[in-house]
Amino acid sequence: MRVAFVGKGGSGKTTLSALFSRHLARSGAPVLAIDGDINQHLAEALGGSEVSAPPLGAHVPEIKTLLRGDNPRIPSPEAMIKTTPPGRGSRLLRPLGDDELHTRHVGRAGGVPLMVTGEFDESDLGVACYHSKLGAVELYLGHLLDGPGEYVVVDMTAGADAFASGLFTRFDLTFLVAEPTRKGVSVYRQYRDHAERFGIRIAVVGNKVTGEDDLLFLKEQVGDDLLTHLVHSPWVRAAEQGRAGSGPDALASLEPHNRHALAILREAVDSEVRDWNRLHRHAVEFHLRNVHAWADARTGGDLAAQVDPDYVPGSGADA
């Protein structure tokens, strides 16, 4: 199941992404964390350091070559764009599978498998859009055959920037992390309004709650979308200062209320039923949007023809 964490910058979405990933890993569940934020801090939040595996964003041509496979609708890797959907002949991947992409790009941080999109480098400054790097994540999720009991946790870009691409439609459930402040819930309203248009389910996770007044404020502002909340955490502060230990087992010292909140998040994810038709329908819709907006003109091809009619990944023939 695919899970995204979004929220205002500073809300704690990276911290929650890391805590949830560590919670899953501690239970023995197969989990892959992906740092899709412009500020690459997930490895540190997981209790590790920099990931030794190369970033996805620096190897997009090779990733396209792999995922293209023998798909006759895609004449070359250069003809692929970030939204190109899979079709018959495409290379589909299993989470943490024995393939070139996972072998090359998965490192570990705090005992959790992790892939990163990569940071801006000097050649990107002033001329590149960060979302071009996120294209590798969008392609990866579009060609992923994950199932129940398998978890992919993505720390997304801050604010409403996630809507700058179709990546926001690639998840089974999106957790919006909100502090109990007016600024904290403003991103919730933006995300809610955009998500409703596409039938994307979001659940709000309150963070840094210090008392009943904070909790009441969140309930008044987000209503039934509030799934659970985490209280102010000395353990998290100690972890941020390098004093809480690393690895999934270190989570045993997290405050009981916060450990329970993580269990509620997992219950919510596990209760979701994968809708392959919806995922693929959104993939095709955003691919055609990009085709008409810029991709045909840039590539000189008819990229709408990359859509394989009546094909839906995960339908059984791909498994």
Rank of each mutant, 00 (worst) to 15 (best):
R197W: 10
F120C: 07
A162N: 14
A53L: 11
Q221F: 00
D146V: 14
E285M: 14
H23M: 05
E100M: 10
W235K: 02
R192G: 09
E62H: 07
A250Y: 06
E179Q: 14
D275N: 14
A283M: 15
N258I: 11
K8A: 04
I74P: 03
S253W: 08
A4F: 12
K219C: 09
V231D: 00
L16G: 10
A239L: 13
P256K: 03
V6E: 02
D214I: 12
N290K: 12
D224F: 11
A109I: 11
P234A: 13
A283K: 10
L141K: 08
G110C: 11
S11W: 07
F175M: 08
L42H: 10
P77T: 02
V204F: 09
L139I: 00
A252N: 07
A268I: 09
L145C: 13
S52N: 11
K208P: 04
T169L: 13
R237Q: 15
R182N: 06
D225G: 09
L288I: 13
V236K: 04
G47E: 04
V205Q: 02
G166E: 05
R26I: 10
F163E: 02
T117Q: 08
A45L: 07
V291A: 15
V116L: 02
A268D: 06
A319M: 08
Y151P: 03
F20W: 07
A261F: 05
D308A: 04
G184H: 08
P55Q: 09
S76P: 02
V116D: 01
S17F: 00
V60H: 04
L230N: 07
L254W: 04
R298T: 13
A43E: 00
L141Y: 09
L262C: 04
N39T: 13
H59I: 01
D224W: 10
A304P: 06
V112A: 00
R68M: 13
V205W: 08
G247R: 08
P85R: 04
G199C: 14
S11Q: 03
D161E: 15
V177C: 03
D70Y: 03
V152I: 15
R192L: 15
D35S: 12
L173H: 01
V154I: 13
H131G: 07
R278G: 00
V204A: 03
V153W: 08
R274A: 06
E220C: 01
P180M: 00
D35H: 09
E285R: 13
Q40C: 06
A128I: 01
V209R: 06
G159N: 02
V273D: 13
G126D: 08
E220Q: 15
G314W: 08
A4L: 11
A295G: 01
A304V: 03
V154Y: 05
D310I: 05
E100A: 13
P55C: 07
M156F: 12
L66P: 03
R289C: 06
V137N: 01
E196W: 07
G147M: 02
C129A: 03
T228C: 11
R298M: 14
R68L: 04
Y188Q: 11
G147W: 06
I38G: 12
N71C: 10
T84C: 01
P309I: 08
W276H: 12
L279G: 12
A160Y: 00
